[in-house]
Amino acid sequence: MTDVITAALMIVGAFFMVMAGLGVLRMPDLFLRMSASSKASTLGSGALLLAVAVHFGSVGVTTRAVATIVFLLLTTPIAAHMLGRAGYFVGVKLVETTVIDELAGQYDLRSHRLRSKQPATAPPESDQPQV
């Protein structure tokens, strides 16, 4: 029984890992690549680590595997956020099919702060605070 669960988890993990690699290679711009890599790799390595926990079935191994999964779940989004921010400052191009980019021009390139509305040159949308 545990062998079947282990095998299933390993196959799922390997599948999503290959999807992550394929996505990183095929996607046309930085943000799409991050989109493909960050989640598929989290799910893939999470499934593989769970397979280890099920296979060995002892407390020590399970706590270590679960700790690693939690750590990955916490850190992957942060790494993606920081890389996306850095990419935006470097001026990475978005792919031509992008529908809309509402972040364009919102970063203050000198102070590295992020505004919530267009600066004063654009017509103000409304005076009411956005809820």
Binding site: L30, R33, T42, G44, S45, L49, L72, A86, V92
Partner: peptide
């Protein structure tokens, strides 16, 4: 940044 994304994915694959 593209290369860094690839490096990050490589280490995650290494964990797998």
């Amino acid at each position: 940044p593209d290369r860094v994304v690839a490096l990050d994915l490589l280490t995650t694959l290494g964990i797998g």
